[in-house]
C-alpha cells in the first residue's frame, strides 16, 4: 500500500495568510489542482477574486491594483509563470512595487525523480529573473508566506511562493 502524505498545505492556511497580510485581490487562473482553494477564496467577503484569461495578464492587473492602493496576489501555475516572462519584467520588476506571486509547482516532488520539464525549469526561471522564492509544502510551512510578504514590502520587488503540495491539500 502506498503511504499517503500525512501533512498537507490546506487551502484554509493559504487564505488565512492572505488575510493576515492584508490581501485585497487574488488575480488568478485556476487549475484543476486548486479548485477548492478557488471556492474558498470566493467565499471570503474581504477578498476579490479576479479571473484572468492568460497568466501574463495577472502581473499587469496586479500593477493597476497596486497603483490604486490595493494589495493583490498573483496565483498561477509554473507553466503560466513562464508564459508571463515579459509581463513579469515590464509590469512587476520594472515598476518597483512589492508583489507576492503564488506559483503552483507542477511536476515537483521531494522524493522521486522529476520528469516534468516545467518543474525542472521553474527555479532556474526565477533565478534568471532574480526573484527570490520560498517553498511551501504543508501548513507548518505557511509562515513562509508572511516572510515573502515582508520581503516583498522591504525590497519593493516580487517574491514567489512555490506551492509544492499541488496534488494534495487544495483538492477535495
Amino acid at each position: 500500500m502506498v503511504e499517503q502524505q500525512a501533512a498537507v498545505l490546506s487551502p484554509e492556511a493559504m487564505v488565512e495568510e492572505f488575510r493576515k497580510n492584508g490581501v485585497t485581490h487574488v488575480v488568478t487562473i485556476p487549475d484543476s489542482e486548486t479548485n477548492y482553494l478557488y471556492e474558498l477564496m470566493q467565499e471570503q467577503s474581504w477578498l476579490d477574486v479576479v479571473p484572468a484569461s492568460r497568466e501574463g495578464e495577472t502581473f499587469a492587473i496586479a500593477l493597476g491594483l497596486i497603483i490604486g492602493g490595493k494589495t493583490p496576489v498573483c496565483l498561477i501555475q509554473n507553466t503560466g509563470m513562464m508564459e508571463s516572462g515579459d509581463s513579469i519584467r515590464g509590469m512587476a520588476l520594472d515598476s518597483g512595487f512589492p508583489l507576492v506571486m503564488v506559483i503552483g509547482y507542477r511536476g515537483w516532488n521531494r522524493h522521486g525523480v522529476i520528469t516534468d520539464s516545467v518543474a525542472r525549469y521553474t527555479e532556474p526561471f526565477l533565478n534568471a529573473f532574480r526573484i527570490n522564492y520560498y517553498l511551501v509544502e504543508q501548513d507548518a510551512d505557511s509562515h513562509r508566506i508572511s516572510v515573502a510578504f515582508e520581503e516583498a514590502k522591504n525590497t519593493k520587488r516580487p517574491v514567489a511562493i512555490l506551492v509544492g503540495d499541488e496534488y494534495h491539500g487544495f483538492n477535495r
Binding site: 488575480v27 493597476g64 497603483i67 490604486g68
Partner: peptide, 12 residues
C-alpha cells in the same frame, strides 16, 4: 499588457 494594467486600476 497595458490594457490589463488599466483594468487593474479600474478595479482598484
Amino acid at each position: 499588457h497595458t490594457t490589463s494594467a488599466a483594468l487593474g486600476l479600474a478595479l482598484g
